[in-house]
Computed example of a mutant assay.
Amino acid sequence: MQRRHLLQTAAALAVPALGQQAWAQGSFPAKPIKLVIAFPAGGPTDITMRSLADNASKILGQPVIVENKPGAGGTLPAQQLQSAVADGYTVAQIPLGVFRLGYTTKINWDPIKDITYVINVTGYAFGIVVPADSPLKNWADFVAYAKANPGKLTYGSTGTLTSPHLTTELVAQKAGIELQHVPYKGSADLMLAVVGGQVMAAADSTGFATQVEAGKLRVLNTWGEKRLDKFPGAPTLKELGYDIVQNSPFGIGAPKGTPPEVVRRLHDAFKKAMEEPSYVAALARYDMLPNYLSSADYTKFAQDTIGREKVLIDKLGLAKGS
C-alpha cells in the first residue's frame, strides 16, 4: 500500500512538469481559441479582427473563433478575462476604454495587474460625419449651430466613455459648445441612426466610409496627425485649431497568469498574422494601419495610457463621484 501511495504521489507531482514540457514542445494550442471583441458583427473592428483571426488560425493550426461582446463602452471582453482560465484559450480585444475603467466605474480588478498584454495590433482612424443633406456643411456650421442651440445638437458614438465620445466632448469643451450625446453599441447601429436622421451627427471610426462614398454622409473632420487619403477635403482637428490627435490603439490581452510560453506562442502567431496582405487590406478599408507593439511594449503602453486617460477624465469632470 505504501509503495502504491508513493507511486501515486510521484505521478501527481509529475503532472505539472509534464505540462510545462508540453508547453515547451509547442503543443499549444490543442483546441480552438476564443477571441472576444468589443463591438458588434459587421463593423470595422469585427471585420478586421476576423481577418486577423483567420490568419492566426492557419499559423496556430487551430481555429481562432471570434465572439462579439458589445456594450459597456467596449470593456466587456476585458471583464470576461477576469473569470477565464489562464490557459491561452480565451483572449480578448483591449480597447482604450479599458484604461479608463478605474476612474469611471467601480471594478474589483486592476486593468494593468489583472490582464496579460499579448500584442498591440492596430488603431482606429476617427472623424465626425453628418447626413449628406444636413444644413451643417462644414465644421464652422456645426459650431455655429451648437452655440445658437445649446444642448440641442445630437451626436451618436459607439458608447459612453469610448474614444469617440470622450474626444468629441473634449473638442466641444475647447470650442465652447454643448452637445447631446447618444450612445450606440457599435458602428453598424450608429450608421443606421445617423443616415436615418435619428441623430444629427456621428463620431466614429471610419466605418462610415462606405456611407460617405455612397453619398449618404459628409465628413466634417478627422482626428489623425494628417488628412486621410480617402477624405482629402476633411480637415484634421489640429487644422481646425484643436491640439488633439486620437487614433485609439488596441490589441489583444489574455487572463492574468497565462504561462509565458503560451503568451509567446500567441504573440508570435498574431504578429505573423498581422503581416499577411489580407489583414493589411482589411485595415486599409477603414484607413487603419498595422500598429505592432510587443508584449513588453504593449504592457508599458497600457501603464502610460492609464496616466494620460486620468488627465482626460478629470478634465471632462467624468471621474467617479465628480
Rank of each mutant, 00 (worst) to 15 (best):
A302F: 07
S294V: 11
K216M: 08
I128P: 00
S187Q: 08
T258W: 01
V171M: 06
V219I: 08
F270C: 12
L35G: 07
I177V: 15
G176T: 10
P249K: 08
Y155M: 09
S294T: 15
V64I: 13
Q93A: 04
D304C: 11
A140Q: 15
F28P: 00
A282L: 11
H165A: 10
A92F: 02
G257P: 01
K34A: 11
I65T: 14
E261R: 12
D114A: 04
L96G: 12
A125D: 05
G207L: 05
Y145T: 11
L13F: 13
R218V: 02
K216Q: 14
A78C: 04
V199I: 14
Y242D: 02
P44G: 15
K137S: 10
S57C: 08
T154A: 11
P29G: 00
L237T: 10
A146M: 07
A17R: 10
A84K: 02
P150F: 07
P232F: 04
G26I: 11
F99M: 11
K31L: 00
G241S: 07
L166H: 03
V199T: 12
A281D: 15
F39V: 09
N55Y: 08
L179H: 03
L190P: 03
N120M: 14
N120Q: 15
S83Q: 13
V66R: 06
E261C: 04
I37S: 05
D141C: 09
F250R: 01
K300V: 09
N68F: 02
V195W: 00
L237H: 05
L283T: 05
Y279F: 15
I244G: 01
I115C: 02
Y103D: 13
L220F: 07
I306E: 14
L179G: 02
Q173R: 15
A284D: 13
Q180L: 08
G233M: 01
P150I: 08
N247V: 08
L60E: 00
I128L: 14
Q211Y: 12
R285A: 12
V15W: 04
L316R: 13
N120Y: 07
A175N: 09
E169G: 04
A12N: 08
E67P: 01
K272G: 03
T45I: 14
D141A: 13
A56S: 08
G73Y: 06
D114Y: 06
I177Q: 03
T48W: 10
K137T: 13
P183C: 10
P235R: 06
V91I: 15
L76N: 03
T105Y: 06
Y242R: 05
D46Q: 14
A86C: 03
T158L: 12
A254I: 04
T167Y: 02
W23D: 13
G71D: 02
I94L: 13
Q8I: 15
A41I: 15
W109C: 09
Q173S: 13
A78P: 01
A254C: 03
V121K: 01
V121E: 01
L18I: 14
K310C: 02
P235V: 05
D297S: 12
G307H: 12
D229W: 00
K106Y: 10
N138L: 04
L318F: 09
S27T: 12
D297I: 09
A53E: 07
F301G: 04
L101C: 06
V130I: 12
G42K: 07
P259Q: 05
P255K: 09
N55H: 11
A10N: 07
D54A: 15
M49L: 15
